[in-house]
Design a protein around this nucleic acid. Structure first.
Lengths: 168, 168
DNA sequence: GCCGAGTCGTTGCACGCGCAACTTTTGCGG
DNA sequence: CCGCAAAAGTTGCGCGTGCAACGACTCGGC
């Protein structure tokens, strides 16, 4: 993006290693793909009355033995703030896909539980969503690229997790 | 309850090809990396009083021969709605980094122009932002992975661009 | 037992964004 | 030259989210 930049004025005497062509391609590719890809996946969910976020809630709950999760655990899974999760669940609850139930063990805790209707709707939606992920992303890539992406993302997340722990 | 699902064009009961382990790793990696990586980059911009979006505005403007752009062109570059760009510029204008000037050629058009202060601030910020991109992303990967990411994102965007044109 | 610190979830507020409606201006076809 | 569709930008509104404050509850030390 910044090809017209001249020597930076206030750099503390470090050379400022600019991005090479391949590095720039990867970086701009990342930035410019996030929006369109998310939008395409979300558009394919519209007929089912779900957003990407809604789908993730149902998917995480269904991956659980008793189809329920504590709010705080679910919020962590979704990388969502507590208040964000509260509001997201509001919609799913009024649509009857998820129920809120206080925990018997710990009365501070609210359990988000997948209702039968929610499970049915997820099972109806999942094949189409999976197809969407394949069409817009996975099936466009060859196995070597799939593998490289998996390794790359793992490295980045490991690095970020380490930094986060350093700060705490 | 918006279960407006009308099984659009898809025929019934196709085998539903689930994701293999490598495919799942790449997919989850993508989904789970977007948030943390964007947050880390944004956090590194806080000392400079900029968001990722603000930085992109300054960067695109600085890449232009006369450091100015029509609002609509800038909105397209940033994949932002017209109203979204108006509001984003509001902040930059009040901070004196960008100025709004009506175009002489076409009186419908507003030009967003990088002010001297804006250019100075960008040149002060750019090295740190670049370093941030390297630390959290680029420098974690080896050349083969960089190349694979570049190719992969190019493919995905080419596919999405094609689909978008089909709809219009 | 009890009290203080920590945890869990919700609510008020602010912010950023998209959509729809509107005004101004341009350009094209008659 | 006129009239009307299209384009550019702003504003009102709604939505989703994070942060801070709060009430409810749990747990550990005394």
């Amino acid at each position: 993006m910044a090809s017209s930049q001249r020597t930076s004025s206030t750099g503390p005497t470090e050379p400022t290693r600019w991005l090479g062509a391949a590095e720039m391609r990867a970086w701009r590719g990342w930035v410019d793909t996030i929006g369109p890809l998310s939008a395409a996946l979300e558009a394919d969910l519209v007929p089912f009355g779900l957003t990407n976020g809604d789908y993730e809630v149902l998917a995480w709950l269904s991956d659980t033995p008793d189809a329920q999760m504590r709010m705080c655990d679910l919020a962590e899974r979704l990388r969502l703030s507590p208040s964000g999760l509260t509001r997201r669940l509001d919609g799913l609850v009024t649509n009857g896909l998820v129920s809120r139930e206080p925990s018997a063990d710990d009365r501070r805790v609210m359990l988000a539980r997948l209702t039968p209707a929610g499970r049915a709707h997820l099972e109806r939606t999942a094949p189409h969503h999976l197809d969407s992920v394949r069409r817009h992303f996975i099936d466009l890539l060859d196995p070597a690229e799939i593998d490289a992406l998996g390794r790359a993302f793992d490295k980045v997340r490991a690095h970020l997790r380490g930094e986060q722990n350093d700060r705490s």
